[in-house]
């Protein structure tokens, strides 16, 4: 409005805002815009780099409705937000620290901490997966996980406690060689083949439970028993000798009776049983129940690599 009398001498600059106002404004930007803004001057590159608060408020604005950002970094469970498109952040001890997000092929994402440049961590410069290697693994050159996928990752991703991961050990070792020491173990996120999440069902098809060494020993160490009626069924999809192909597992606290209604009341041992779902490296599933010394393995019941099917409960 009063432009006319303002043209003279001093013009106000973004620098003249108090720092908290600057940060407030920047928190409305996307990571790539913040990064771009940082390039404008030395002052702002350090402002953007050294202000965890900025990333907190930015995450709050972007994902605040989807997660409890104020709880990040509390207690044993550290939740985090990842932005697979641009950069990554992890809340640890109330501070956001940068992470690298690496695509280990189409269905496997590894996230680890550390980046040379504060917040400016990204997929292509992480160095863990070179361009050719990535395209190799991916099969569809140049296509990073689509927009929807990354949104879903952002919205719910959180971290399980660091633990060994048998099936990705090989990949880990390779990373270790390249990165040396790190503050925490990388996190693995595995997507289930042909079972994609949707905005309505963000958890569908996306697992973040790497196989722990404990689980690995349960799976490999115990005898696998299959119900007799099905025993002659040749498990073509899952050669029974290849236990090492298990990629991840999901724990179920379900009862044997509940899961298999036909067996209700007729089972010899109707106690509660701990359930497991295993995902094999080819993307298909198996599931079963743990007993004291053996595993009731029902994986051959899985059809076409799927054991779960969506049910529309609204129709009932």
């Amino acid at each position: 409005m009063a432009n006319t009398d303002e043209i003279h001498t001093i013009s106000l600059s973004f620098n003249d805002f108090p720092e908290d106002v600057q940060l407030n404004i920047l928190s409305f930007l996307t990571p790539s815009d913040i990064s771009n803004f940082a390039c404008t001057s030395k002052r702002f590159v350090s402002l953007c780099r050294d202000a965890p608060k900025l990333w907190f408020s930015m995450c709050q604005r972007q994902f605040g409705s989807k997660t409890l950002i104020n709880k990040w970094g509390n207690g044993g469970l550290s939740e985090k937000a990842m932005n697979l498109d641009d950069s990554g952040f992890v809340a640890e001890n109330e501070l956001l620290v940068p992470v690298n997000v690496n695509f280990m092929g189409k269905n496997h994402v590894v996230e680890e901490n550390g980046s040379a440049f504060g917040y400016s961590c990204n997929v292509s410069s992480s160095g863990n997966v070179t361009e050719e290697e990535y395209e190799d693994l991916c099969g569809s050159p140049g296509s990073l996980p689509d927009r929807l996928m990354s949104e879903i990752y952002q919205c719910f991703s959180n971290r399980t406690s660091p633990g060994g991961n048998g099936s990705t050990r090989r990949q880990r070792r390779r990373e270790r060689e390249m990165h040396g020491r790190r503050k925490w173990e990388p996190q693995d996120y595995v997507k289930i083949v042909n079972c994609s999440p949707t905005p309505a069902k963000p958890l569908q098809g996306l697992w973040k439970f790497p196989l722990s060494s404990e689980e690995e020993s349960i799976y490999e160490g115990r005898m696998h028993i299959q119900p007799l009626a099905e025993a002659d069924d040749p498990c073509e999809i899952f050669p029974s000798s290849d236990y090492k192909a298990v990629l991840s597992m999901l724990c179920m606290n379900s009862s044997y009776d509940l899961v298999i209604p036909d067996l209700a009341g007729s089972t010899v041992n109707p106690r509660q049983a701990e359930g497991r779902i295993w995902q094999y490296e080819n993307g298909s599933f198996g599931f079963g129940f743990l007993r004291d010394h053996y595993v009731i393995d029902l994986r051959h019941i899985a059809l076409n690599g799927q054991i779960l099917d969506a049910r529309d409960l609204s129709g009932d």
């Binding site: 990571p31 790539s32 771009n36």
Partner: peptide
Amino acid sequence: VRDEHKWAHE
């Protein structure tokens, strides 16, 4: 500095 931030421009 632009090189460090070039990811933002991709």
